[in-house]
Design a binder for these strands. Sequence first.
DNA 1: GTCTCAACTTAGACTTATTCTAAGTACATG
DNA 2: CATGTACTTAGAATAAGTCTAAGTTGAGAC
Lengths: 142, 142
Amino acid sequence: MTAHNTSNKIVTAEQLLLSRGVKPTPQRVVIADYLLQTDSHPTADEVLSAVSEALPVALSRATVYNTLNTLKDAGVIKEVLTEPGRVRYDANISHHHHFVDVKTGKIVDIPADKVEAIGELLGDQYKVHGFQVLFYGELEQH
Amino acid sequence: MTAHNTSNKIVTAEQLLLSRGVKPTPQRVVIADYLLQTDSHPTADEVLSAVSEALPVALSRATVYNTLNTLKDAGVIKEVLTEPGRVRYDANISHHHHFVDVKTGKIVDIPADKVEAIGELLGDQYKVHGFQVLFYGELEQH
DNA sequence: GTCTCAACTTAGACTTATTCTAAGTACATG
DNA sequence: CATGTACTTAGAATAAGTCTAAGTTGAGAC
Ligand SMILES: [Mn+2]
Ligand SMILES: [Mn+2]
Ligand SMILES: [Zn+2]
Ligand SMILES: [Zn+2]
């Protein structure tokens, strides 16, 4: 089941890919399925090892990168940048934020509505050392 | 002059390095000075070309990376992650945010107090496509 | 049902950002 | 002045990601 896609219309990775116009090849389905059922924000390498060890189908590094870029371009997943030198992937495409535990490296989702009173008010299971707001958009010239 | 360090006690890059316990070698001073007088959030490569073309002193790529990491560890500069695969550097170490113009790639600082009413209220010279809050801290176990 | 062709996958070469290594330089201190 | 440590350097090494060129697949044409 899709842990991150809460619509009850789209239940399988295959249907999700079809709905976004991505041909559901076995490799793509297996990668999308893995991303949908994890909340760990894995890197490409982590996707490769998780998926290839659990699957009978052969899977190359190039296909993992191709698929991640295809899924990103199709809006099925998002990139998450939390540390230099590695891109992480997230099947939760809703507008939300991330909390990085600097001790464990664990990355957990923070719902957008938690962030209204920013910094504080995150709940006492989070000790916030700092946070960064990163805007994407366009600058109007002067 | 230091565009980003608004204290009037510390005026030169050399004094800033000394105050943070970093030995002010010519290479370090020249790199710190460049970062202090730009607001462009340059990459290591951009630092290297800007600094080596304007300076008589020889400067190697390894020294640029060594110096950037030293300055970061000493709290003189901060890393800024805005796109996959490249780290940018910022001599503005105050708590602030960034706005990425997706058309031009320009990265401008957003003062922290601008971000209270997040998303909207950024001023009409900014067309916000989206933003990300990135928290750093520690997760208390359950 | 077979043919055909574009889309997809693959292994490995390549590129690029960053780090490491090993040797040289600077310079503070004895 | 000699020495030792910190610093710098060129280039080798690493690691994430992309590209290339050759095979594979499978949906539609017939
Ligand atoms: Mn990418
Ligand atoms: Mn770094
Ligand atoms: Zn997430
Ligand atoms: Zn900044």
